Amino acid sequence: MGIESDILSDWHASAAALQWLQELGALDPVGEMPVDRYALAEREAPATRPQAAPAQPVGRPPVPASEPPVAVKVDPVAVAEAAAARATTLDALREAMAAYPHCDLKKGARNTVFCDGNPRARVMVIGEAPGRDEDMEGRPFVGRAGQLLDRMFAAIGLGRTNPDAERALYITNVMPWRPPSNREPLPEEMAMMVPFLRRHVELVDPEVIVVMGNTPATAILRQRGITRLRGNWTQAWGKPVLPMLHPAYLLRNPVAKREAWADLLLLQSHLQG
């Protein structure tokens, strides 16, 4: 009985110890030393296999990875030069200017102011930019300044409505769209329009060009200071050019009309030979 009671006592002690260990979480007794299951899991984790690239069709080169589109910088002057060069008639040039998308002045204008007068005229008058009246009507020089211009040239026998090319005028502006608040056109705005203006002169092929004001003097002669330039013949684009004071300036400074009259007589003398 002594031996059997000792065995039963050891068994009950072992069972109690095992139950106590199970309650502590030791459910897998596998050896005499403790095992760190977390470290074991990391060591036994299989290496991550690289994902295979999608198969390419046989006989075709691999498709390159897509890249973000690169913005193409547009040169507005180069676009204007190309559009102007393609115009072979005045109507085509008018359409090219109306379709030109790179000058923001177009967004605030009612009309594209292209020209007025007789395209066979000996004299081509180039002004600055449309004002409110010109923008409303779609023709250059129709406001107070335009009325004064008509009287000025009528004094030497020239007019925009004259069907006789010898006594006619052809009128346009550097800018076909009205600048906000009638401000002066910016240099970059003028640069966009110069190719169209030069093509305009080539198609009309006048005998004489009259530039009225600083804007056409800058665009054609690349000079400013119209009060200094006026009354002096010069050359540009293969044509004789006479700078004159703009009629709007004369309305603000009536005393300068004497100088404008002298310039008109100079033009008349040139046309008479």
Rank of each mutant, 00 (worst) to 15 (best):
P187Q: 03
R252G: 13
V241C: 10
L245A: 06
E81M: 05
P64S: 02
F114V: 02
Y38W: 04
S269W: 05
R122L: 09
L245V: 11
D6P: 00
L197W: 13
P101S: 12
A219M: 02
E207C: 07
A55P: 00
N118P: 05
Q51C: 06
T215F: 07
V208H: 08
L267D: 14
S5C: 00
A109I: 03
L245F: 10
P254E: 14
G108R: 05
V255F: 15
M244E: 10
L169V: 08
G213E: 14
A262K: 08
I220F: 11
T227A: 10
D36R: 14
R151T: 09
A17G: 07
A92M: 09
D263N: 15
L186D: 14
G31M: 03
V211K: 03
A84T: 07
N253W: 12
H200G: 02
P176Q: 14
D150S: 13
E259L: 14
P176F: 15
A154C: 04
L264A: 08
T112P: 01
I220S: 09
E184G: 12
E202C: 00
E4Q: 01
M192N: 01
L18P: 01
V72I: 05
L149Q: 14
N118Y: 09
T89H: 09
T172N: 10
V201A: 12
S9E: 13
L105N: 07
A53D: 10
A83N: 13
M193R: 04
W261M: 02
H102A: 01
P57N: 02
A92S: 13
M152G: 02
D10P: 00
L93H: 06
G238S: 10
V30I: 09
M193E: 15
Y38H: 07
V210W: 08
V208W: 09
L221A: 07
A45M: 12
A260E: 15
L148V: 06
R94S: 10
A236L: 03
L264T: 09
M124A: 10
R86K: 11
I156F: 13
A260R: 09
A83Y: 11
V123E: 04
R178G: 09
G25W: 08
S14K: 06
